[in-house]
Design a protein around this nucleic acid. Sequence first.
DNA 1: TTGAAAGCGCTAACAC
DNA 2: GTGTTAGCGCTTTCAA
Lengths: 341, 341
Amino acid sequence: MTVENKRPLTLRDVSEASGVSEMTVSRVLRNRGDVSEATRARVLAAAKALGYVPNKIAGALASNRVNLIAVIIPSLSNMVFPEVLTGINRVLEDTELQPVVGVTDYLPEKEERVLYEILSWRPSGVIIAGLEHSDAARAMLKAAGIPVVEIMDTDGKPVDAMVGISHRRAGREMARAIVEAGYRRIGFMGTKMPLDHRARKRFEGFTEKLAKHGIEIADRAFYSGGSALAKGREMTAQMLARSPDLDFLYYSNDMIGAGGLLYLLEKGYDIPGRIGLAGFNGVELLQGLPRQLATMDACRLEIGRKAAEIIVARLETPPREVENQVVLTPKISYGDTLKRG
Amino acid sequence: MTVENKRPLTLRDVSEASGVSEMTVSRVLRNRGDVSEATRARVLAAAKALGYVPNKIAGALASNRVNLIAVIIPSLSNMVFPEVLTGINRVLEDTELQPVVGVTDYLPEKEERVLYEILSWRPSGVIIAGLEHSDAARAMLKAAGIPVVEIMDTDGKPVDAMVGISHRRAGREMARAIVEAGYRRIGFMGTKMPLDHRARKRFEGFTEKLAKHGIEIADRAFYSGGSALAKGREMTAQMLARSPDLDFLYYSNDMIGAGGLLYLLEKGYDIPGRIGLAGFNGVELLQGLPRQLATMDACRLEIGRKAAEIIVARLETPPREVENQVVLTPKISYGDTLKRG
DNA sequence: TTGAAAGCGCTAACAC
DNA sequence: GTGTTAGCGCTTTCAA
């Protein structure tokens, strides 16, 4: 174990230590081309002894290949996105490709910045949440000349490929199920969503479908920040104080729905008889509540997986043809809080 | 808007479009050195018109500077780590530095691989969870010649800097509080933890302190996988069936603790009289439960923040001197499930 | 304030 | 099977 490793090691060091040309060392380290078993062994030994770590910066510049996949998502604290990442990882793990994550905090300007930064590393592909981007962002995505998969949402026109569910349809379906079950006085609770387009679309689909049945949302409330469980509890209490005749509460996510559920159970409400509840996302986290909240699976894992598969296929030589508009269809799970129609 | 952008744009393109030398274009784009306002404007205009995105690969190679900070964590599905990331982000956002995340799934071999991959991008610093690493990993960290901050845990010797809490002490403190409150028949539930060193250390500290009071864990159970809330519920039911005389349950994390709490409330147990409960982490998520679970804050945000601050300080020129062994001390929150001694 | 030359560490392409 | 040469797109350095 030598100590003075101030200057990082280079291929040249390995070359000198092993008495093999830099080029051949490079071949060995990348498993490229034919190298005799003997040289191969010598090189590997030298590299390991020195503790050589290749410089991908130089490699990428020379080969014009960067095995990075940019993944751009709005948030990490939402659980939804880590799950999508998990799906992406599952697929990329079997390849040379590595995901690099950028977080936008639901801010278009930040999305633009993050995209710019990450594209300046010349990744081989981009997976980005949502279909709504600034003109500049869209222009960058197009100009990058790499596969781009927009995920989560399919209500709109992608730059290139897309994988997701129709949130508008998800909203409609839930409205249908609720109406069919006989509920009529419906309240809605969700995040303030000027920038969460998917939540907005679900809400739009929901109200639209209700309207077809001649029903209008009877009450609504929006929150931001804080513990979702606590907010759900709090908002539910307030809403029922204000509109005691509601017979259904639709929550824009499962966490606030769970808060509402716990509150109503404590108060002794008859669920789903006197009042029904539903959330959205199908978060596994919540199994274990006293009652199973009605919800709709957002297909997070599957979305990540499919998106990564598209990227991988497109990057093969020659590119493998794949479906590049994948619309998944989430199923309602009625749980114990929504009567069957 | 031109269309055929197959070859990515280079500085040279901007140089030609603006009639300014590549070198000066580079200066403008980096805000380095004196450039006249006139040329500056021309260059910026040309760059924007073309949609030029700099190539950091080339820049990094030439300048030998990579403004990436490697962040290596065991998991993204734990909520704990996204929160640490948030803390890191908060600090790095005000700098040129960008975090790049690698996930190890609690596997030492994977940690080694991820570390190798990420170091081959020559980042300027590393933040890595835990103090336990393979010899090879430790060697790489040392050889990299960059600031390394090991986070979360302080029970051990860091390669370089460390920021965290003593999990052994956390376990001891909780044991003390429980004993002082008068509980005697104590059960433990947690993850299977051969590789989760922090959970293991908490457990060790816990049993050690109990032993000092002449108390031994009366029952224990371990789980892996699945919804933590459901597992907590299930394990609690099983344990109390098996050991009905337990008067306290210590859970290795808040999620399973919450599952247990919900179960016991349903069964009508007197909490914290007949039986007390405590978890670990202080997850904000759970505010909104019918009762507040006793817990201990793991200082996640603060850990991320401090770690990033150390990196930033060390990277200044000249390096700013900073405390590089930061031991935070979490406080017990008694909530509604642990009597005060 | 601007430009020209050299080279960062690696790999593609071609010789041998 | 192995080596040589010429860059990749930038920034450093130094000269003008």
